[in-house]
């Protein structure tokens, strides 16, 4: 009995020693040495390609010293009463135009300035914004979500209305201020699919009679890449309105409120990003498109729009180490 145990032990020892020494001759063993050097906690990059989806922001910010110039355009209704061939499917009209500049103060903080026409009576808009990347998703899922904060202040420069019930009957300068605060929670599920949620707070210092000053909304957006440089982008917002005020306004304006939905094609060429999109929202600024969209997809009141973004890098050349 003891003898067999001994033999087994001996052969076991022999096996361990031979197997540990022999592979040293092979190159595989060198590879084994390298296996331990794999870095952990790598940041997930390009959850989205642009700082914006269609109507909403993405979690992306610019890199330090990057400058982004962007033009957004929304045409008139494609179909419905105001569309069709007579208006050349909306191309004769433009409901909103926005020209925006963004600059990366750091890899985490982007500042923006923009001018938009504005789609409702609240027009001639100037927007200042700050966007801060709070958390970045990691490849090992130690951080499973990316979190970005967005805040903007939009000032309406339109001439004040005489009608005290109107949305533009401004008495003082601060009446013209509108604020948007957003927490953008994004996750890149795989190299082709990313999704985000955008809990949104909107405060308008002055609104039409019985319109809400403060409004909460929830946005969702996604990007589905189908080729190396092209992707389908979608975003949607649900504003949470007070139902009594909503009914009053809908009756008074003889127009219902609808949730803005945008669907678009994103084309990336390395430096340029083009969006060709369809949305029922007439406005481009968040403070306007989320609470004031009164056009519906089902009535043909969707439009095509586009955005062109060009990014420039002003990254300084690092000094060569001597």
């Amino acid at each position: 009995m003891m003898k067999t145990v001994n033999l087994i032990l001996k052969s076991l020892v022999l096996f361990v020693f031979t197997s540990s020494s022999l592979p040293c001759f092979a190159q595989d063993d060198l590879e084994k040495e390298l296996a331990t050097t794999t870095p952990g906690h790598q940041k997930v990059t390009s959850t989205f390609k642009s700082t914006k989806l269609i109507n909403g922001h993405s979690n992306e910010t610019l890199y330090k010293n990057d400058f982004d110039f962007k033009v957004d355009h929304r045409f008139g209704d494609i179909a419905g009463n105001n569309g069709g061939i007579k208006q050349f499917f909306g191309l004769d009209n433009s409901t909103d135009i926005r020209i925006g500049f963004e600059y990366g103060i750091s890899d985490h903080l982007t500042v923006g300035l923009a001018r938009a026409k504005g789609a409702t009576a609240v027009s001639q808009l100037y927007e200042g914004s700050l966007k801060f990347r709070l958390l970045e998703q990691t490849t090992d899922n130690q951080v499973p979500l990316a979190v970005t904060l967005f805040g903007s202040n939009t000032i309406a420069a339109v001439k004040a209305s005489e009608d005290p019930t109107s949305a533009t009957a401004y008495n003082k300068f601060s009446d013209r201020m509108n604020y948007v605060g957003q927490v953008i929670l994004a996750r890149k599920f795989n190299s082709n699919f990313s999704f985000e949620l955008m809990p949104t707070y909107i405060h308008r210092n002055f609104t039409a009679f019985r319109d809400q000053n403060t409004l909460f909304a929830l946005g969702a957006g996604g990007r589905m890449k189908f080729s190396k440089r092209m992707a389908l982008v979608v975003d949607y917002f649900i504003p949470f309105r007070n139902s009594a005020d909503k009914a009053y306004l809908e009756e008074k304006n003889a127009a219902k409120f609808y949730d803005p939905l945008g669907v678009g094609l994103e084309i990336e060429t390395g430096g340029h990003i083009f969006h060709i999109n369809f949305t029922n929202a007439t406005a481009i600024e968040e403070m306007q498109l989320i609470p004031s969209t009164t056009s519906s997809w089902t009535k043909g009141q969707y439009r095509w729009g586009f955005s062109i973004a060009r990014r420039f890098s002003f990254a300084k050349k690092e000094k060569e180490p001597k």
């Binding site: 060198l30 050097t37 890199y63 990014r311």
Partner: peptide, 25 residues
């Protein structure tokens, strides 16, 4: 025998957007 191995995402570019394109495209 000699082996060199580099993690592609560890390459640092002066222009970060270029770095993103390098890895992704």
């Amino acid at each position: 025998n000699i082996i060199f191995r580099v993690n592609n995402t560890s390459f640092q570019f002066r222009k970060k957007l270029m770095q993103e394109h390098f890895n992704e495209n």
